[in-house]
Every structure is written in C-alpha cells, then in structure tokens.
Amino acid sequence: MDEYDSEPIRGLPADLPPGEFILWQGAPTRRALALRVFHIRLIALYFAILVAWNVASALYDGHPLPMVLTAGAVPLIPGAIVLGLIWLYAHLIAKTTLYTITSKRLVFRFGVALPRAVNIPFKVIAGAGLKTYRDGTGDLPLTLAGKDRMAYLHIWPHARPWRVNKPEPMLRGIADATEVAETLAGALKAYMTDPDPVRLTEVSGAEISGAPAPTADLAGSPAR
C-alpha cells in the first residue's frame, strides 16, 4: 500500500513497467455503495418507523391534526440529514476510487482525504469470485495466496464483508460486473499459462471456473 501525491497514469501511482498494459479501469457506483455498504434502505426504514410511531402516539393521545403532523415531521429533519450525508459519502468514495486491471496485477486507488494505492500482483491471487445483483452491478472478491494479508480497516470498504482475520480485497459495486470478471479471468489465465503479456490479446471467452491456482472462479449467481 502506497500513499502518493500525483498520478502519472490515471489510477496508478507510477508509470507501468515495459510490457505491462491496462486491460480495464472502473469505479464502484454510488448507488451500490449506499445500498450495500452503508445500508441506506435500512436507515431510511428506521426513520420511517419513527415517523409512524410519533404519528400513532399523537393520535392515541388525542392531539389535534396540526400537532399530529408536527410530531410526524420531527424525525424527518435528522433523517434527511443522515441520509444525505450517507449519499454524499458514497458519492465521494465512488468519485475517488478507481480499480485497474493490468496484464500482471490489480491496482486499487482510493481515499477521500488521502489517496492510497494497493498493488495486488497476479502471483499472490489464489482465487477470485463474482456476485452479481439485479441492477447489473457486482462484487469481485479476491483470495490471496499464502501468508499475504492486508489490514481490513486499511482497505475498507474495498474488502469482502466479515473476512476480518484474513481480509479479501474486493472490487465493489462495479457496473457490468460479468464482463469485468471475464476480463480478469482471461488475464489470470494468460498470466498462468504464459507471463508474456503480448499473448494476452489472443485470449477470449476465458473459462470462468475450474482453472488451477491461481484460480478465477468467477461464476456468480444473482443476489436476491
């Protein structure tokens, strides 16, 4: 993990070495982050319950309609502020994050206040997964080989949930996740069979599962 002040190439802290090239770049969507990282729907439901409770209590106590409406409106102001802040933070994370797949590694650039970059060479990737959602976005968690580890809090929210002891970095909430998974699977397969990146352009329709380690088990199932 590196901190840096400039990007000679967008999303990368340094120029690419000779023979390495970019295959794909993308970022998480604001909506995916708000829904699946910050659970904005549950928070909205919480404030909706508070509104309903205040209204029901005012009606039960026999208050006039203006007081009932006032009681129901009381939770709306803090609710709107909280939901607005969540959406703003999701927007900032999406805006400052960029995932890059090259012919030899993945690079995560993120950090709202202080940009950081995490380089994940293909040689340390033991496996990759794919989980897609109905809106077309998806998550691609990565399993690292051997004793290679990253601190969970250092890469959050770009980490698989609840994998704290051995964190798994994750491309989170990306659009067209299936196509990105195919790109990653092809790059991993090309790297395993021949580290020469020139031949990577010949790989198409790469197998998404069943490859030897490092595996690319990217057969995702839509989430409900």
Rank of each mutant, 00 (worst) to 15 (best):
A181C: 06
K95F: 04
E179A: 07
V203P: 00
F122Y: 13
F38H: 01
L83G: 01
A56T: 05
Q25Y: 10
W87Q: 10
L23M: 13
A159K: 02
G205A: 05
S6D: 10
I43T: 05
G84K: 15
P141G: 00
L171A: 03
L106V: 05
I120K: 03
M1T: 02
M192F: 06
L130I: 05
A94D: 02
S209E: 10
A90C: 12
G129R: 05
F47T: 03
W156A: 11
M67N: 10
K131F: 08
A159D: 01
I81W: 14
P157A: 08
R224Y: 07
T201H: 08
A175V: 04
A219E: 02
A213V: 03
V203F: 14
Q25W: 11
G220Y: 01
P75Y: 08
A126Q: 12
L142V: 01
I43F: 09
T201I: 11
G79A: 03
Y89Q: 12
A223V: 13
P222V: 02
T97W: 08
A44Y: 06
I174R: 10
R116N: 02
L114D: 09
R41C: 04
L114F: 10
T143M: 13
L106S: 03
A181I: 00
L16D: 03
M192C: 07
S103L: 08
S204A: 09
T96V: 10
V82Y: 05
I77Q: 04
D217T: 01
L42K: 13
Y89I: 12
V55D: 08
H158T: 01
A14H: 11
A113F: 13
Y152E: 01
V55A: 13
Y99I: 10
Y4V: 00
V203Y: 15
K104C: 14
H158Q: 13
R10V: 15
I40P: 03
G11Y: 14
V180K: 13
E168D: 11
T29D: 03
P115D: 04
V37N: 15
R105L: 11
Y152C: 01
L142Y: 00
A58D: 09
G84T: 12
P222I: 01
I81A: 09
K166H: 15
G146Q: 07
A175I: 02
G72K: 04
S57E: 09
D5W: 12
D135I: 10
A185N: 02
I40T: 04
L130C: 13
I125P: 00
M67C: 11
V82K: 05
F38T: 09
R224I: 11
A213T: 06
N119G: 13
K166T: 08
F21Q: 02
L144A: 08
P157T: 01
T96P: 01
S6L: 07
A34T: 09
R163Q: 12
T132W: 13
A27Y: 06
T29S: 08
A56F: 09
V198F: 02
P8K: 14
K104F: 15
P115F: 04
A56E: 00
I155Q: 02
N119E: 15
A52T: 09
P121A: 10
V198W: 06
K95R: 12
G84E: 09
D139V: 00
S6F: 12
L144I: 06
P212H: 11
F38Y: 07
V203E: 12
E3C: 00
G186E: 00
G127K: 01
K95A: 13
H91N: 15
D176K: 11
S204G: 07
A187M: 11
L12N: 06
L59M: 05
A14M: 06
